[in-house]
Write a protein that binds this DNA or RNA. Structure first.
Lengths: 285, 285
DNA sequence: AACCATTTTGTAATTTAATTACACAATGTA
DNA sequence: TACATTGTGTAATTAAATTACAAAATGGTT
């Protein structure tokens, strides 16, 4: 967690004077890193030692060390600039904003993701007899993408975006099968049902979903992705991208676990596509 | 240009002693930001004023200011570097690397993307009688995702990942129809055919593909995304994410062009999902 | 409401760190 | 070799941050 976020999350544990310091810093972090402790103290209307204590409370060695941490937080930039698209934005503005907030979301996801859970998920996936990916709506395309990746590993993979098919598939699952349910909100009723059915049939259910959601509670293992979503456009955007990256991570973990020899298979799969493509050298035709 | 890069590029203009300082800093920048000027001077075997002069030469106000800049460089550096996954990486390492290289890819894409082309694409899409999204393999899920977004706009949208269906659809296209072809390499023969057929039938063809590829040459309008792809894993990863973000941008451009009243429709579409979900307040059950 | 314990805050002294001024050394040029 | 220029270090100075301690505020208890 970076210092800036830490300040925000600690804000209620600060004393009155320390809070004044926090306010001044949050109002203008850029200026803070170029101020002396005296200047900052004056601005927050507190004494210098108070500022120093404030820094220590944030687990820094002192004021200069705090500034260093702050500078790094600011340089990271993205997490703080989840900028929303506005009515009057031109192409330049909304393009930049969407790129930036997507990157910000990925950065948040990276910091919050549970590496342990990922490792366990990879474990489970490598030992699966069969892997099923289920998603609905926007998550359906993530499921398709996952299928496209895991299919290359020469493991039985299925992917359904149809509730009825999902249901039938879940009913037929058994011990050793892994079912991956994908849902940003984790509140899609149909998908919760699927997860429950799969579990009743002894399948291992991995949820790529929100922490502590109804779906999460139905799962054997939850990979939670709490990313800030821009809801102004009424469309899932950043969450979906984070889900895809998570799929990439699982797929990568899978191939690494299988060793280098296995990876030659992947190369073969990729090479098999050559016939369907124009040669690279044809580029200048 | 960040300080670290600046040191590297200035290295020949440094005096002998200043160079010693540069070497020590470059060898261990992370340690530098936690050292005093005295410690650093000793390590480089020079005097303290020399270190100070070194900092000034780099257009900083002095040593503390230099450390601030250095801290920012280091923070900036990491997330945007495209690091490759290695055989011996553990979950922690490969997770971080994949997040980081995806973010790096998005950053590159953002810098290279042609805003003008985006704007024209939005123009074309808003005026389309019908929009078709076509992709194969990994790009198929991007096409699905695009359908999921544009479908909400109450415009006729189709999406096929089957060559035969794509072909039939392309043959039936006509003036006013927009066909979006998605392919990272731009060398998938079947998709080039589709693009050609669609154009022959007077459809406008937008390509989300590599610049100057065979597919690009078949298109009316090209949105090129030249992102660095980690080919070690033999799977499309970053390119696909960049394509999705581009779809988000087009969709956003579309809604903005249509005005605020239109966006109320989107809200309705989103609200319509409520029935299929558990309430948020149910979360604590 | 008065008391004590605890926490919070500020003042002043102290320490630490960084910078400046200046002198000496090295390098290059006529 | 002499002179100018640039580079470097020592010591003095200044600036900044930290510590120690005392005063004030807060909160709970009788």
């Amino acid at each position: 967690m970076n210092v800036l976020e830490k300040i925000v999350s600690t804000v209620n544990n600060f004393s009155k004077s320390e809070r004044k310091v926090a306010d001044v810093i949050l109002a203008n972090p850029q200026m803070t890193i170029h101020s002396s402790i005296a200047a900052l103290a004056k601005m927050a209307d507190v004494s210098e030692p108070t500022v120093n204590r404030f820094c220590r409370r944030l687990d820094t060695k002192g004021f200069p060390d705090f500034k260093l941490h702050l500078a790094q937080s600011l340089a990271n930039g993205t997490p703080y600039v989840n900028r929303h698209v506005e009515e009057e934005d031109g192409p330049e503005a909304y393009t930049a904003k969407i790129f930036e907030s997507t990157m910000a979301a990925l950065d948040t996801a990276r910091q919050r993701v549970d590496i342990n859970a990922i490792n366990r998920a990879v474990d489970v996936l490598t030992q699966a007899k069969k892997i099923s990916f289920f998603g609905l709506g926007a998550s359906a395309s993530v499921a398709h993408d996952a299928q496209n990746k895991f299919f290359r590993f020469n493991v039985p993979v299925v992917c359904f975006d149809d509730i009825v098919m999902q249901r039938m598939s879940a009913i037929n699952s058994s011990d050793g099968d892994v079912v991956v349910c994908i849902s940003h909100t984790g509140r899609t009723k149909n998908l919760c049902d699927i997860a429950a059915i799969a579990r009743e049939n002894d399948a291992t259910v991995i949820g790529i979903t929100a922490y502590d959601s109804p779906l999460a509670r139905e799962c054997t293992l939850v990979l939670s992705l709490d990313v800030p979503e821009d809801t102004d456009m009424y469309m899932p955007m950043a969450s979906r991208v984070a889900q895809l990256v998570l799929i990439d991570i699982l797929a990568t973990g899978f191939t690494l676990r299988r060793g280098s020899k296995f990876r030659e298979n992947l190369k073969k799969v990729k090479d098999s596509l050559r016939g369907s493509r124009f040669d690279k050298k044809d580029l200048n035709n």
